[in-house]
Design a protein around this nucleic acid. Sequence first.
DNA 1: TGTTTACTAGAACCATATTCTAGTAGATTG
DNA 2: CAATCTACTAGAATATGGTTCTAGTAAACA
Lengths: 214, 214
Amino acid sequence: MRGKRQHRTEPRAATVARRASVLRAALDCFTHSGIEGTTIGDIQRAARCSVGSLYHHFGSKEGIAEELFIEGIGRFNRGMLRRLRRCQGAEESVKAVVRFYCDWSTRNRALASYLHSRDIDFSESARVRLKAVYRDYITQVFVWFGPFVAGGEMRALPPDAYVPLISGPIQEYVRRWLSGHYERPPGAMKELFADAAWKAVRADHQSSSKGVKT
Amino acid sequence: MRGKRQHRTEPRAATVARRASVLRAALDCFTHSGIEGTTIGDIQRAARCSVGSLYHHFGSKEGIAEELFIEGIGRFNRGMLRRLRRCQGAEESVKAVVRFYCDWSTRNRALASYLHSRDIDFSESARVRLKAVYRDYITQVFVWFGPFVAGGEMRALPPDAYVPLISGPIQEYVRRWLSGHYERPPGAMKELFADAAWKAVRADHQSSSKGVKT
DNA sequence: TGTTTACTAGAACCATATTCTAGTAGATTG
DNA sequence: CAATCTACTAGAATATGGTTCTAGTAAACA
């Protein structure tokens, strides 16, 4: 009775559950043995489903990996935007980006690690989807930050410079922490990187105009 | 009966040539079709050698990937240290790190792309080797920068903070450029990121020492 | 009720990573 | 020099595991 529109029909409850359970299982396996290291059989066993089911839903092993990746990015992006929209001024917003990155990666360690592990090596179609997801996200982010730049609170820079300047350092720290090079959890460095981020993009007017915030 | 040096013998010229040609071929293939996408046959054909030869030298496909990765990192590290040692003061050194990262990645685009693509997903032994390589490198780097911190030209920070602060942004920019998200080649942003890096780690000797804000 | 279709199952299939056996050629030794 | 040793090469044989195929089941719908 719901959308009887042409082919467009809601997926069954069982379907979304199965897809989710496969992705969960896949993440476990990938985390444990890497993508190449896990076999379809491993995922099958962990998700308690058949080969046919896997291929029906995802088409291939790479399809599973891509879906997991894209969905993970989506989750991260939505969380970031939610957090951002609760912020007040430019400084708070910039610092929130760093803090959220840090918190999210710590809370979703396995997924964060997976998202860091690759970016390349996907099919063309996945590449395209990913790019679209990123473009949507970055557009929203720029809508949020635009006024701060226009209002002179933040430096005016080439658009592509902001993300690297603000989240480059925390991202690099988290990456190294996740792959075991650094001991200290990123939470310990959060404020340091948040301050650095703000320092990198704030407009510096030598004639100090206080810096009052609400 | 024993050789002059037990097992330690110089590899033949033909051997090093063969290894090099395999790695070159593998990089081509990986760049073109990704690691999973290239078969042993592809590499074999590109390097004009037999399966046996491949397995004799590298043990497995993953062995080839690891070797390429580790050797690539080594090349980068040696280049960076060479560049660093031609610098004079703290500011020049910090900026040189950013500039070298940018230049090297642009000059060795395929290899840089490969080095960005993964870090995880290797065998335990490769992980260990990689860590050792990194530790040696970072030790040298700290030997170089130590005096600048001691001399008060650079901020004193937790050791693990320097790399992310200095090279995080350029690295992130290059990564996105390599995977096609950004159009402008990193050279265009080099000085911007170099300045930012210096701003992030220089000791600020102004009156900002009295907490300006909350 | 019957029909349709989203989904599941697992055996069969096949591409390909890896192993195995049999070498060759350049160095080393007597 | 001959004998031998060892690093290296070759390609057929094997094993693993990703993918396809056929035959279903059960929920939605008429």
